[in-house]
Design a binder for these strands. Sequence first.
DNA 1: TCTATATCACCC
DNA 2: AAACGGGTGATATAGA
Length: 609
Amino acid sequence: MTDQLQQFTAVWLIDFEFQAPPGERPQPHCLAALEILSGQRLRVWFDGNRVEVPFDVSDRTLFVGYYASAEIGCFLRLGWPIPARVLDLYVEFRVATNGKMLPCGKNLLGAMAYFGLDAIAAAEKGEMRMLAMRGGPYCESERDALQDYCRTDVDALAQLLPVMLPQIDMPRALLRGRFMSAAARIEWNGTPIDVNWLMLLREHWSQVLERLIAAVDRDYGVFDGNTFKSDRWAAYLYKHGIPWPRLESGNLALDDDTFREMSRRYPTHIGPIRELRVTLGQMRLEDLAVGSDGRNRCMLSAFQSKTGRNQPSNSASIFGPSCWLRSLIRPGEGRAIAYIDWSQQEFGIAAALSGDRNMMAAYQSSDPYLAFAKQVGAAPKDATKDSHPRERAQFKTCVLGVQYGMAERSLAQSLDEPEIVARELLRLHREAFPSYWQWSQAAVDHAMLFGFIQTVFGWRVHLGAEVNSRSLANYPCQANGAEMLRLACCLMTERGIQVCAPIHDAVLVEGPSDDIYHIVAEAQRAMREASEIVLNGFSLKSEAEIVRWPNRYSDERGKRMWDRVTGIVADITRGHDPVDGVIGYPHTGMSGTSLLQCHPVQSLHTSGQ
DNA sequence: TCTATATCACCC
DNA sequence: AAACGGGTGATATAGA
């Protein structure tokens, strides 16, 4: 065990019990800690008085936790400096077992069970969780119970660490742990929300739904309150003699693809109801986790997905629900936010890691999709987005489809073209990017041979009984994309950039309006560096969209819906009151928004491999 | 009445 | 057998 820990003069196993109501920052109750080299223990109760950090937090000290962003969040609340070295046994358990069946789950008890270690009963743990979440004041016995329980979690870590240590790749584990610190800072920061409009939407949502439905359903009568009834829809179809596709189960196929297909054939009958169904979606504004300071905060659920992506709750995070709701994101007075995303991130990753020269050239051109079309002679060399929109759209769909392993049948369907068109596009892709296809196939073969596939920094998934080769082919792109995002988040937060949220291939950052150009430039530099480190020197571009107070964030796709909904709310509340003061900026407008392009310089950094 | 499953909608 | 990767979550329906 000491081999792996040689570089450290202290190894602290830590656990906090804390309270964190939805959207609020964590409030620690107590800390239990064990330094395993000396056997020293800490038992601290936090009663609101200032407590000095009881640890050395330099790179000579290793902190070990289980889902450590929670612990580090408590550090932030206490005003303690963030540890330089973090080993997160949750993350290491995830990477060790990713893709495997876990009979007892992946929480601390599940990990204990997996390694055949004794742990406290799940029921007791649940009870103590409840007690911590309930918050104070606590009587003396509750306080003791909470602290005793906190100690048992540390004891669990003490059992787990020596068992897991031999298979831990320490340098890479520390990189993953480093991200948990970044995650803590991001969870701490959160995303600014227009609370006034959130309240209005919450208050009037059912009425908004009623109006949206009433306007269309009077011609159909297929809704019961706010729910679409398939039997009534069947009756409507029967009455109008419209044949409708069914699922294997015999039920009507009610997905939007079917509606789209059918509305082509029966536009007047199907069109309006389809648009309504698309509009409604489903939404529980109540679950959106907004704290008392008006910021959306929720656990990032780092390393949750097989590919290592974050998977925050869709209902708690503002980036989860339908994108028109993102108009609720609004910087405070004097502040600005920027949404920065890598351009065609997965395409760039595939190009760089496969070393496919044509694909790299296409990525580096101003328009990868058109570059692809030009490379195979489907568009002239001087073609532009405007001169050849149709070709561009087709080659774009092809590129995106290939990334997910799409075959000609599905591609034909998404192109709305005969299969022969899709087949030809796929052939052209193979012709243009032969090294990519070779690399992709080699990755799948390697995975099949060795039973796992991994990223440049060792985030791996183990193959189960059922192997999906499309999933394997996509893994290097998605999982290395996740590595890249984590690294960028580390660089940004460590350099003092306020990151509100990571969104798979993007981040939302924030700062004073006057500094936002500088902040965006810094953030883009960090994203470029991260791409170069992951991709052996290949730079990915990024695009930034800046929104300054008093404007609100808006997603192009959701603009209409936002205007429609806020219009209805304004109508409902007209004459009542507070809307006038609030409604000042219902239109998202691009006026305060600008687009910055990042044109990176090629550099020759290598990965840490 | 509660729970499991299927289906669907949304995100990148 | 299917042929679009990774997710969360709401809802309807079927079954206990």
